[in-house]
Design a protein around this nucleic acid. Structure first.
Lengths: 254, 254
DNA sequence: CGACTATGATTGTCGGACAATCCGACCTAA
DNA sequence: TTAGGTCGGATTGTCCGACAATCATAGTCG
């Protein structure tokens, strides 16, 4: 027992700008401020918190990026409903910085896609399937443009998620989704055959939804993702290499 | 065609503080700045960007919250490696604001847990299992304290994730994980029997890891999560009610 | 050689200022 | 009456200068 028995809580002086951010955040989380409500002008916040405007502004910036507050048409502050992709952008960048491998991405996508398709089979409406069909048609029309195919593929799986009607799962997938697009781009750009198989898989998936055939849906999901991996390998890329480099070009342009 | 054929791109003037944030972010994502590297003092940034210090500070605040820049011991700025739970906090709060239901949470958790346990069965090392055993023993010792049980349960599943060795999946789970803890709290606080079943399930899961028995692992995962749901229902809560209220008390204290 | 101190650098906060922009009210003309 | 134009006040984005508190570091002293 070389340590002192009684431990004092660490003293961590919290800067004023953080307290401002936390105070506003508390109001939002508690429900007293609802999405869309105006936060008030900076001058009002200055009066309420009793701090300088610079401090208020720094506090607001903290909340701005996570989407808890937004600026409406005229830069006025309002409570925002943070949308998935806003947060997912940060998350996927974190994944890149952590240098996750394509293998990890593939494994996770497989599991998440199977879960999604299960839900989608149960819950698909006619409307959903019309949307999916339209997407497939569009994909087919742009078959020779790898970037367009990758974009439509992303949209297809996004529609599939919506069909599943589970927002927790949706949000769980978003970070990895953002990494999938660039790798799909690479995977289908070699051959048109890859794009053709992609469209076929999409068609079979929708058919499985129509017939509510869960087994078929799972089968084609697996095939689809195996194709994706093979395309990646065929492009000469290593499964255990960080997704870093591949996404770098895309990440900076968006 | 009442619309004009030619559409102009929207003009969105980007404030200087955002440009500062984006410039720094680009450097980090490109790899020129690596986690741990010092960013430089505010004065240096002022010189480099040619803007006022207030502007620089606002830009930094934008990056601070997502963990891309951190302040080390002495408040100096350094490139940070954003950790999962940092982003997950925002994400789980977003889920609450979106008023996701317990049913959605349960469905997603089921899918994600099954995926996790599959990987864990394949990859569990002796070290992993020792850690899990220790956690179970600790849980057993604190059986009459619902809060402690819920906390240990959370840790158990965290350890299970680490065992799976897939960081993409890990990050995908984090937001929902943060919502699970408070509901587990509620679910086991009624009866000691609930806690007992929880410990039993954990034991069987570890045994399944030992024998590399994937079917057994999946079976007990399902049972475990069904128990969790039943406990939630038994507490008189509605599956289709937003997780909002339940978590409110916890979310504000952390 | 280690503990202590002085000095400079850096951050957090403040007050004030100004241009650009936006909102709303008011006004004018067909 | 209504479409369009004008004007003043309010608000944001940015800048400047300043100061106390704190930290890092080098230098000093025991």
């Amino acid at each position: 027992m070389s340590e002192v028995a009684e431990k004092f809580a660490r003293i961590t002086p919290v800067p004023a700008y953080q307290m401002v951010a936390e105070a506003i955040e508390r109001e939002i989380l508690s429900g007293r401020l609802r999405p869309g409500d105006p936060i008030g002008t900076e001058a009002q916040l200055v009066r309420q918190f009793g701090v300088n405007r610079s401090t208020v502004r720094e506090g607001i910036r903290l909340l701005e990026q996570s989407g808890m507050v937004q600026r409406d048409s005229s830069r006025r502050l309002a409570v925002g409903l943070p949308h998935y992709d806003q947060l997912a952008t940060r998350a996927s960048r974190a994944l890149v910085l952590h240098q996750v491998t394509f293998r990890e991405l593939w494994e996770a996508t497989m599991a998440l896609s199977l879960a999604t398709i299960d839900l989608a089979v149960d819950r698909a409406t006619d409307d959903d399937m019309r949307g999916l069909d339209a997407n497939i048609d569009a994909t087919e029309a742009a078959m020779d443009d790898p970037a367009a195919v990758a974009a439509y593929d992303t949209e297809f799986h996004l529609l599939l998620e919506k069909t599943g009607r589970n927002r927790v799962l949706e949000m769980a997938r978003e970070p990895s989704n953002m990494l999938i697009y660039p790798t799909t781009h690479v995977a289908v750009q070699g051959t048109v055959a890859g794009a053709r198989r992609l469209v076929e898989a999409h068609r079979m998936l929708v058919q499985a939804l129509r017939t509510r055939d869960k087994e078929m849906a799972r089968l084609w999901t697996r095939r689809h993702l195996n194709d994706w991996r093979k395309g990646f390998e065929k492009a000469g890329l290593d499964l255990d290499q960080p997704v870093d480099l591949v996404t770098a070009s895309q990440a900076t342009t968006s």
